[in-house]
Nucleic acid binder design. Structure first.
Lengths: 192, 192
DNA sequence: TGCATTCACCTAAAGCGTTTAGGCAAACAG
DNA sequence: CTGTTTGCCTAAACGCTTTAGGTGAATGCA
């Protein structure tokens, strides 16, 4: 019995690549086993179950994304940081659609709380230091930015903007301009 | 053999309710058959396959949502219309999480083009008539609003804002204030 | 080196969701 | 009341998931 050298680590990495190839929702223990030329049951020594595998891929993607974002915003501030940060999300979604979908996967609260998701929120908050926002507006803004990045990536990956003018690239740039303007001019009082 | 009176229509409606109860991703032909106390194979006279069922539920949700949105914005303009429109999405996500998830389901391009999704885009554009946006900025803004509504509903349904202050309700209100301010003051030139 | 232990991968089997093919009986049309 | 349509059925094949238990390869210790 030739040992292939499976490990949780290798399964997760391969799962992430598989997700980029065929789509995250199609990643399955069976398919992964096939890739390793191994029987399905063998995976179950390394991951608890199919759900566990997907969760691990999601956590992996969140880490990878957070690492890239951290790199991107290092030494930048203000709009510069905002754009660099936002582009990490967008590029990740384009280069690694499967992993990006994995990163958007719904995690149960405890798992989410222990994930790199909190780093994402912290970095978003750090970017807002370049703008004059006090609590609770900073939190509102963090949530707005999260919604936009999440939502845009999701719609774009669903092909929402693909066959219409102007192209998605331009819209993305202009949305970042708009968000920058909004953050510099955040409405303190509800404007009736 | 007691005839239950299945039809595509009834299956889709029941599927939508089922989605709200157990989550859209758990809606399955088998489960639906169980609800109707009918054998699974019987469903296949009414829907092509499992994917077809889910697509139909998604289209149903998109229609329902578009109808509600149309009601909400009738006779309103400006921020009033924006808020009413946005709240339809938010309320739908809270009252019908399964259908809302269905509405966010990825459809293939032709199906999407023939869906109520286009009505959503048209209504969004109609709301922007209350603001002074010319093309291509109007399109950018439509995409931004779509991203925010989509993203916020998605994050909220994943529990993203549930156990932290300030509460989601307040953030939502403030985000709408911010979007209104942004639309009234959309940056024409990139601000470096 | 030889033996014991560990561990990676296997086979077998059960459970469940999907899907197709073909059959029977209820509803309906004339 | 007879013939047709059609709604729901049984049967069966297939794929994914998961568990239980076995075998042989790697590893460690005397």
């Amino acid at each position: 019995m030739a040992r292939v050298g499976l490990s949780t680590e290798r399964l997760v990495r391969a799962g992430a690549e598989l997700a980029d190839e065929i789509g995250f929702e199609l990643v399955t223990a069976s398919e992964l086993a096939r890739r390793f030329d191994v029987k399905v049951a063998s995976l179950y020594s390394h991951v608890k179950n199919s759900q566990d595998l997907k969760t691990r891929i999601s956590l992996f993607a969140l880490e990878e994304l957070a690492d890239r974002a951290a790199d991107a915003i290092a030494g930048r501030a203000g709009k510069d940081a905002l754009v660099a940060f936002a582009n990490v999300y967008r590029d990740y979604g384009r280069d690694h659609p499967g992993r990006a979908a994995a990163a958007r996967m719904r995690l149960d609260p405890e798992t989410a709380a222990a994930s790199a998701g909190v780093r994402h929120a912290q970095m978003t908050r750090a970017i807002l230091r370049g703008y004059d926002l006090t609590e609770p507006d900073a939190t509102h803004a963090v949530r707005l930015l999260g919604s936009v990045f999440h939502g845009y990536a999701s719609l774009e990956s669903a092909g929402g903007f693909s066959h219409s003018a102007p192209d998605s690239e331009e819209t993305w740039t202009r949305i970042l301009d708009a968000l920058d303007a909004l953050l510099r001019n955040w409405p303190t009082e509800p404007t009736p």
